[in-house]
Amino acid sequence: MSNSKLDRLQFLLDKKKFADSEWDNRGLIPSDSDLCEYMESRFNSCLSSLIILVKSDSSLEILNKELNKGLKSFERFKFDTEEREFICDIFYAISKEIEIDFKNELNIWLYGNFLAYVFRISSFFKVKEKILEILSQNCIKCNSNLETFILARENTILDSDFLIVRCRSCRELNLIDNGPNVRQLRFGEYELVEQLPKSNYDLEGAKIRLKQLQFFRK
């Protein structure tokens, strides 16, 4: 590993990764200072370990395991969507410095195993995808059409999650229930904010969670 790459890892270690200016660059209000310090300490611990491993010419497999260990030290449900995306962006930057393909691990951490699998399969077949069905509902604020494109169904797949999504037109949060048997899908004019497993949430609980997120994002 070249000294220049070690220097860049050291730069990331020394840098205040969650300074107010970094949040401002993303167009976001800074998170609580205690939470920012916690995220800094988790990243610094991971980076310190990686620097030691890089200096000892450790294999990519060992570096991958250490990076994954660092990612798993962040319990994703403790963070909101913007914080999770920020965390993933930093891990992605680190992975590029140590020349590791870490996108799949980041997708699983960000979206969960099922949606990460769905997105991965969709990306492979995007050019020749065939839409079986279009599920549609109107945004509760701007009335834009929020479409979900069903690309494949499978009877053995359970009805697993409610989705809280953000309308791309007005940024309002909406609740979507795509129902059972969905094996492969693609989002239309909305982006995922949070998954709510139906093992933990009924419809009323999902609506309460939606209202909580709408309130805290005002």
Score class of each variant (00 low, 15 high):
128 K>A: 07
135 L>G: 02
146 L>Y: 13
118 V>S: 11
146 L>N: 09
153 R>K: 14
109 W>T: 01
123 S>E: 15
115 L>M: 13
149 F>L: 11
124 F>T: 02
114 F>C: 00
145 N>P: 00
115 L>R: 11
111 Y>M: 03
140 I>L: 10
148 T>P: 03
152 A>P: 00
152 A>G: 03
135 L>H: 08
115 L>G: 01
110 L>W: 02
125 F>Y: 13
126 K>H: 10
132 L>R: 07
152 A>W: 00
157 I>G: 04
139 C>H: 08
122 S>H: 08
129 E>D: 10
120 R>M: 11
142 C>H: 10
145 N>K: 13
121 I>S: 06
157 I>Y: 06
134 I>D: 01
118 V>G: 02
150 I>A: 05
130 K>N: 13
155 N>L: 12
137 Q>K: 10
120 R>D: 15
150 I>G: 07
134 I>R: 06
148 T>F: 05
146 L>I: 14
146 L>A: 12
120 R>T: 15
130 K>E: 14
121 I>G: 01
139 C>R: 04
130 K>G: 01
150 I>Y: 05
157 I>C: 02
109 W>P: 01
148 T>M: 11
153 R>S: 02
144 S>E: 15
152 A>E: 15
120 R>G: 09
132 L>I: 13
147 E>W: 04
124 F>P: 00
157 I>F: 13
141 K>W: 02
126 K>M: 10
154 E>Y: 08
135 L>W: 03
117 Y>V: 01
129 E>P: 00
133 E>Q: 14
157 I>H: 04
128 K>E: 06
156 T>G: 04
153 R>T: 12
118 V>L: 08
119 F>W: 08
113 N>S: 08
154 E>N: 13
110 L>K: 13
146 L>P: 11
110 L>I: 05
140 I>D: 11
126 K>T: 09
126 K>F: 09
120 R>H: 13
128 K>Y: 07
127 V>Y: 07
155 N>P: 03
154 E>D: 14
147 E>Q: 15
143 N>K: 12
152 A>C: 02
146 L>E: 10
136 S>I: 06
126 K>Q: 11
146 L>C: 14
116 A>Q: 09
129 E>L: 03
114 F>I: 10
150 I>R: 04
157 I>K: 09
117 Y>I: 04
132 L>W: 05
112 G>M: 05
151 L>R: 09
132 L>S: 07
112 G>Y: 04
156 T>I: 15
